[in-house]
């Protein structure tokens, strides 16, 4: 993305001022473009608006054709916490997300380094295994893994969700490797001349230069585990004390026979952490997503 600005600037230099008619046409096209964009943007935002509005209604209103709450029932947000152990779900979720993300980082960075900056026989083969794992749908392996965890008596707690992340994640390894490859050799050589071992180089030079990629991997991993529903459904279903937010939310209606207004309030609460995280780390997010697309 950063390279894009260079040709643009070069282009504007040569450009002569276009005649008035052309400018008028361009202006009208721009207006049309923007208004279409604004309409689509509003459509994209309406679901959020309705979630917020419904979360402030009484249950009767939520099941009526009124779209605007009257009166506003802020108390719903107090009731949600009373109806469901949201704090416990949140703690479980963060345990899962944080420990899994740490695991992904600790295990994937060294692997990506070995696959990109050290030469050894069999490296291509090892990288091929990463690519293969990347292409395999995880759904395929759930049955034997479930059997394995059941035999280890770990079904029903967070173990089966967290542990695999400490043994390398194909997507993260791939992303990091691609990024490590772009680090100029001179930096590493300079460090080697200074007498650094490979581990020192990894810990100092590479980690420092690969910050955007590492941030992206951490964000994706956090987001993925925070939003994950499938694995928690398999492994935690029968043990409510270990439920994560996504399971709790999906069972919210049947569990407490509560109403749509409270359900929407809970929905909003579950969305909130990710959205806040996004606004705090917007740049890392966008760079990260771009990285996946361009490097792929």
């Amino acid at each position: 993305m950063s390279t894009a600005s260079v040709p643009v600037a070069a282009g504007t230099l040569v450009r002569r001022k276009p005649p008035w008619a052309v400018r008028r046409r361009r202006f009208l096209v721009a207006v049309a473009d923007h208004s279409l964009l604004i309409v689509v943007a509003i459509i994209f935002l309406t679901p959020f608006a309705f979630i917020v509005l419904t979360s402030l209604m009484t249950n009767e209103q939520a099941l009526s054709s009124h779209l605007w709450p009257s009166p506003f029932r802020w108390h719903n947000y107090v009731d949600v916490f009373r109806e469901a152990p949201i704090w416990r779900w949140a703690i479980n979720t963060f345990l899962y997300s944080v420990l899994a993300t740490l695991g992904v980082l600790c295990s994937s960075i060294p692997v990506a380094y070995a696959l990109s900056r050290i030469r050894w026989r069999g490296r291509d083969l090892a990288f091929a295994t990463v690519l293969i794992a990347l292409m395999l749908p995880p759904v395929v392996s759930v049955v034997p893994l479930y059997v394995m965890w059941a035999k280890l008596h770990l079904v029903g707690n967070l173990g089966p969700l967290i542990i695999p992340n400490w043994f390398g994640d194909a997507f993260s390894i791939f992303l990091l490797r691609q990024f490590f490859l772009t680090i100029p050799e001179e930096y590493l050589d300079a460090a080697r001349v200074d007498g650094c071992g490979e581990l020192r180089i990894l810990a100092t030079v590479v980690l420092r230069l690969a910050k955007p990629a590492i941030a992206a991997v951490a964000l994706f991993s956090f987001l993925y585990t925070f939003n994950d529903f499938f694995l928690p459904l398999l492994y935690l279903r029968e043990n409510p004390s270990h439920w994560v937010l996504q399971i709790g939310l999906s069972e919210f209606r049947s569990l407490h026979q509560v109403q749509w207004n409270l359900t929407m309030a809970a929905t909003l609460l579950v969305m909130a952490p990710v959205i806040i995280l996004f606004f705090l780390a917007q740049k890392a997010f966008v760079e990260g997503v771009t990285l996946t697309g361009v490097k792929g």
Binding site: A41, F44, N227, Q246, L249, T267, V270, V289
Partner: peptide
Amino acid sequence: FYLPALAPPVA
């Protein structure tokens, strides 16, 4: 346009 992609699928 990016925000909805962040919303957890369950929610």
